[in-house]
Design a protein around this nucleic acid. Structure first.
Ligand SMILES: [Zn+2]
Ligand SMILES: [Zn+2]
Ligand SMILES: [Zn+2]
Ligand SMILES: [Zn+2]
Lengths: 163, 163
DNA sequence: TCCATGACGCTATAGTATTACAATAGTGGT
DNA sequence: ACCACTATTGTAATACTATAGCGTCATGGA
């Protein structure tokens, strides 16, 4: 049993919050966004997003696969990877390269270039949008004539809760 | 056979340069640095660094392994990974997370937090040290109380030579 | 109806990385 | 020179991450 509290899951800014809202908000947004853009928010894709949303941590594709299996879904690798590709492609999730893992986007409403803060101890991941990235890196890029298409910015360390 | 020109290999700043100097400089530095710090710059480690230095591109561990095999070295995965771990650990090389690949450090003399510019078309990789990283990210980190230990900053796009 | 597209089921395989343990080589103190 | 200690290497096995390929089905437009 062990009914799980709906509150207190740490991040957004490493602060406790009502996480149920997080989930509902993200799922609702994804649904509407897909509708508006003629994309198919299928059962598998929704379930994968929900799985990602259960925690503010990055999950490996095979963790997701395990969860899908428990939920009675098909569970060959392509199932997870295809759904993840879709979610990442359309901005509902991100890949954390450092961890070879995936995380739900924390503010999918905005077009953004995310920066991730990863806690080495509790594995929580916080997504931020410091306009620094486009600003600071943009300047360097302009100097050498580099055309930026995508950035990976991942900071590893210790979060405030673990210090 | 096939004497290869010592010049013109693109990067440092995506500019043509005498690449032979690149290699010699890096190897010499690594040797001296290890000597000074009581580290063993063994044959395998040197060879792996040299292999990485042949191009300003990131190489996969198994590419390196193939090269080692041709050179008559042992070629099981741990051979490459151990050498790479050593080189990365001591700042002679870096891992490009986005590519699951490794590249020789371009300025191992300085203590640094590198940023990589990766060209999608020619695969060349340029390492820069914009103090932006520590500056911009540092500010965000301070705001939320995050202790930065390591950063991954990788920019993907099109380099000036490919535009 | 015919066709093109996109999603999914399923199998196999490719690519990346680590564990584990034995053997060997380098280091420093006696 | 000898020993004890540590670091490095040899080797096999395995774990983890990701993609290719192809057949099926549903949808939607020509
Ligand atoms: Zn939440
Ligand atoms: Zn996001
Ligand atoms: Zn060079
Ligand atoms: Zn470097």
């Amino acid at each position: 049993m062990a009914a799980q509290s709906a509150k207190s899951v740490a991040p957004p800014g490493f602060k406790s919050h009502n996480h149920k809202h997080c989930i509902e908000r993200a799922v609702t947004h994804a649904k509407q966004s897909c509708q508006a853009n003629g994309l198919q928010f299928t059962a598998i894709r929704q379930r994968v997003l929900e799985i990602l949303l259960t925690q503010h941590k990055a999950m490996g594709a095979y963790d997701i696969l395990d969860q899908l299996k428990e939920d009675g879904f098909n569970s060959q690798p392509p199932v997870a990877y295809r759904a993840l590709d879709f979610l990442v492609q359309h901005g509902f999730a991100h890949k954390i390269e450092r961890l070879n893992a995936f995380i739900a986007c924390h503010s999918p409403e905005n077009d953004h270039t995310p920066t991730f803060f990863i806690c080495r101890l509790c594995s929580s991941v916080v997504e931020t949008q410091p306009e620094l990235t486009r600003g600071a890196l943009g300047k360097t890029a302009k100097d050498v004539g580099f055309l930026i298409e995508q950035t990976v910015v991942e900071v590893e360390g210790v979060c405030p809760n673990c210090r």
